[in-house]
Design a protein around this nucleic acid. Sequence first.
DNA 1: TTGTAGGCGTTATCAA
DNA 2: TTGATAACGCCTACAA
Lengths: 330, 330
Amino acid sequence: MNAKPPTSLDVARLAGVSQATVSYVLNDRPGMRISDETRARVREAADRLGYVPHAGARTLRTGRSGLVLISMEDIPYGPLAVGMLEELDRELSRRGYTLVQYGARRLRGVPAARAWAELRPVAVLAGAGKLSRQALEVLRSAGVKAVIALGNQPSPVVPSVALDHEGIGVLAAGHLIDRGCRTLAAIVPTEVGLREMGERRLAGVQRVARARGVPLTRVDLPFREESAAALADLWRAVDGVFAYNDEYAMLLMAVLGDAGLTVPGDVRVVGCDDLPLAALLRPRLTTVRLDLSAMPSTLVQRLEELIAEGQGTPYRIDPWTATLVVRESS
Amino acid sequence: MNAKPPTSLDVARLAGVSQATVSYVLNDRPGMRISDETRARVREAADRLGYVPHAGARTLRTGRSGLVLISMEDIPYGPLAVGMLEELDRELSRRGYTLVQYGARRLRGVPAARAWAELRPVAVLAGAGKLSRQALEVLRSAGVKAVIALGNQPSPVVPSVALDHEGIGVLAAGHLIDRGCRTLAAIVPTEVGLREMGERRLAGVQRVARARGVPLTRVDLPFREESAAALADLWRAVDGVFAYNDEYAMLLMAVLGDAGLTVPGDVRVVGCDDLPLAALLRPRLTTVRLDLSAMPSTLVQRLEELIAEGQGTPYRIDPWTATLVVRESS
DNA sequence: TTGTAGGCGTTATCAA
DNA sequence: TTGATAACGCCTACAA
């Protein structure tokens, strides 16, 4: 019960060989010719003792932990992100790495990067906001080989995997104008963490609206029914709204209905994310679907490049695809 | 650039003291009287070098990693769970532990528990399904002090924090019958991972329905509009449905509307989770709200008990609260 | 008040 | 084909 965990030395003793042999066998080190009988004895002994190697000791000795840290706070949890995470985990463990989600807020004034560095990870994925030059220095000096920024906009200091939020706005605005909308509005959420994304998406809408001569109103909106309902006059004055995402679209459609406005007759609405609820709204919601399925492999590829070649390149953006899912009845 | 990370010895040399002194100062070890000047010199040196202690080495030496592992797969990601996780992280780091989310699937046939054990965590939180007696043995033998099962039903072998899904069903059924429903249906999702929970909730509905003499139909339903629509006859035959959760409730309400049935006039519907969308449906959705706010602190408390006293107790369930949010207009 | 020395579990070098 | 042995970075009992 209170016995200390068995070590490779324990295994060696039980198998009647040396510690080194145990290491050779268990890591089946190439180039070492060890008799099958010895191998079997070692394996058997390890099994019987329930031997599990000590990751810390191995890291200490080899200088490589194989850990890939990803910060929890910077992941917009949802079906999309979770699926991507799981695939990323699979992909990484396939290549011998270990993905670990790690909090970014530390108490006692210890900055996040410092806490990450203690684990001597081989790579760190974190929101661009948390990768200050200073944080980066801490990581580099702790031997982190690859740092990649996640988030809404690219980091100026490390390679980034950033969603092209403007592209979403472009897609949505194009659709609305194509369908005949002449007066647009675009919702920007006021929630922290969302506003930034909202503004990027807005920028895309703006670009298209300007290019095609359609007036556009920016609507800063908290996710509250009363707030949306209070803008009834505004909704009456436009005929097309990009709602930022499907949840905002649902909020909007609820208050539009309450105000006696019809969709898409009086106002067209476009959401984003293609949540299950999008197809369940009446009328069904037209939305922008993000395809992140290519992201895990891209991420891993970049990661291995950085690990191999060193973190040379300053920054760049990685691709993904967005498609419009048209559901409006018309 | 390629310099190896500074060690405490480097700090000692720069500060002109011994390695031991560095350790004393940086961990401000009580009982050690070290001059303020020395302290300052050590701190200064550590800063200048960007010294970050090596977690692996410390774990190796002290025998304690302070790591608390939680398995990613067993968390039903959503606003509720994410908030709880963040609070748990805060709570744990406040007490000197480090929460880390870790994948449960390993390749190469290495079972999850074995991979967890390599990190020598002090505690492991994982789905009851992953905590077989065998897995537990591996963990215990690796020095894991506390193992707590998360999930839908308690583990027979370790302490569990399990949601009282039956209670949800009881609450929902009570409400429906109180409001005059005489023929109930309860949805059980067919998705893996959800079905189990659905059946627990169903059991609660069943208990109440039986006790109050109300007939109940179990409806196994995939989350697809066509499937729900195909059951139009069934929906017509009941006057109260517990929809498992808010998303299913939304699905149901969409097809009810399509079939010309009114809510709550023809059929009453109760959801669960009190998602934002619940208040946005028309009519607004009555739902069961889960309050998990007490869970992180309870969890941490149990954890520390187990660490201190050893994993003695076989198992038990921990509390939480569910409340009914009534929104129906009537 | 500070320094010396040993060992935690693992891998790798070298010798047998 | 296998076995001693040293070293990774840190902490701590003990010595000075």
